[in-house]
Write a protein that binds this DNA or RNA. Structure first.
Lengths: 227, 227
DNA sequence: GCAAAAGTGTTTCCGATACACCCATGA
DNA sequence: TCATGGGTGTATCGGAAACACTTTTGC
């Protein structure tokens, strides 16, 4: 059996929660096949751990290192690669297109400002898609995204993980908007702030927003803490 | 790469939290190798999903169907099978002993009273071991158990999953003792009961304990609810 | 001075905690 | 009658939730 990793890469543009999808590549031989969008992923190499494979995929795709990445689920249905388009694509790109492949799902949080789009070796160009408007994807990738989103919601409240999606300097309103969009519900401003400040994951900077047409907000940064 | 599943099977004997371990089999050729204890597990077969493979392993081992089983983590370090004993064992039992194998960890909750020990096709006899006194096991199985236990603790409080370890009819004291042992801390009797009853996962039967030398306890059963 | 978002405290409510005595049974 | 665990209610505390007005900037 082959083993791959697939990465659900979340980003936040201050308005929408997005994920990074790639266009499948056209075959080099000039033939054309129906292409679909897909999650960035790749087969795990011989001497690579799962985590390393996921990190490599992410690096090839985004040129970013040291970003938040977490395994959340293995997907091993023998029929998970059953669509006609999927099989056609596999025949073009895999040495053993008939071989069964299971995948391990990772999700990742990137700061969109850091993201430098870069064509990955295994894919066409990458694009950010609103997570609530994802089209039909290759393989079982829609299911993988659904599960990743559940996990993200859970970790957001349990571990206050949201900082990873924001710029280094951010306002509490940005952070609140992020939480509201991920959780899909409105939060009370004062209570939200109390919570965030109590957790002490965040430090106020000697700096304010500039050039906004309202009272400029205090900027914060977050305290990276390894447990 | 080969893919296996390993099952961390939890049981509860009213005093201790235990897990089911197997003795690795001796080679059929009469040679002897150093055997270790291990988690029940097996390679995933060609047309089997991961969940199906885990369920099969469990069925072969316990003859039980329909028991609680949940995937919790994939383990894919290329060096996870590196011990000398491990390699010796693999050479005796695997067609491709050199091939890398990753495993998907499942944990399972069984009612010990239902358990009918049965030699599995791939193993010697199974035995219940106190989860807090597990010896050094084959492969990375100690690590897998540690992670499974963390998961169990988490799900116990989040999803009130403990019923799965108790007989069909149980007392609230049994349930409390189970929680105390898994979480490794004492709980207040009255508060515990309030919590359990409020959750409505449990129904009082018209039946009491018999033959105990104290006030007989009310028996309860739990409401199986699919979400 | 107006529009727009920032920032700020107090009260209320509910769930979590702490705590001690009587009860039913078998021996 | 005694030993053993079963069973029960209330008062307190603390965190979560609800809620509205003033401030600072750019135009």
């Amino acid at each position: 059996m082959d083993v791959s990793v697939d990465c659900v890469v979340f980003g936040f543009d201050d308005q929408k929660l997005k994920i990074l999808l790639i266009e499948q590549r056209q075959p080099a031989d000039g033939s054309t096949i129906k292409l679909q969008k897909a999650l960035p992923g790749d087969l795990v190499k011989d001497n690579e751990s799962l985590d390393e494979a996921a990190r490599r995929v992410l690096l090839e795709l985004t040129s970013l290192e040291g970003i938040y990445l977490k395994q959340f689920q293995a997907f091993g249905d023998p029929n998970r690669v059953r669509g006609l388009k999927d099989q056609e694509w596999l025949r073009s790109f895999r040495n053993n297109p008939e071989r069964r492949v299971m995948t391990v799902g990772y999700y990742s949080l990137v700061k969109m400002e850091d993201f430098n789009p870069k064509a990955a070796s295994f894919a066409g160009k990458a694009q950010w898609i609103d997570v609530y408007k994802v089209p039909l994807l290759a393989f079982d990738h829609n299911e993988i995204i659904d599960d990743a989103l559940k996990m993200l919601r859970h970790e957001l409240v349990a571990d206050n993980i949201g900082f990873e999606l924001l710029p280094d300097k951010f306002t509490l309103s940005q952070l609140q908007r992020l939480h509201e969009i991920i959780l899909d519900k409105k939060l009370d401003k004062r209570n939200f702030r109390k919570n965030i400040l109590k957790n002490e994951r965040v430090t106020a900077l000697n700096e304010k927003q500039k050039g906004v047409l309202h009272k400029p907000a205090q900027l914060f940064t977050f305290n990276k803490v390894e447990e």
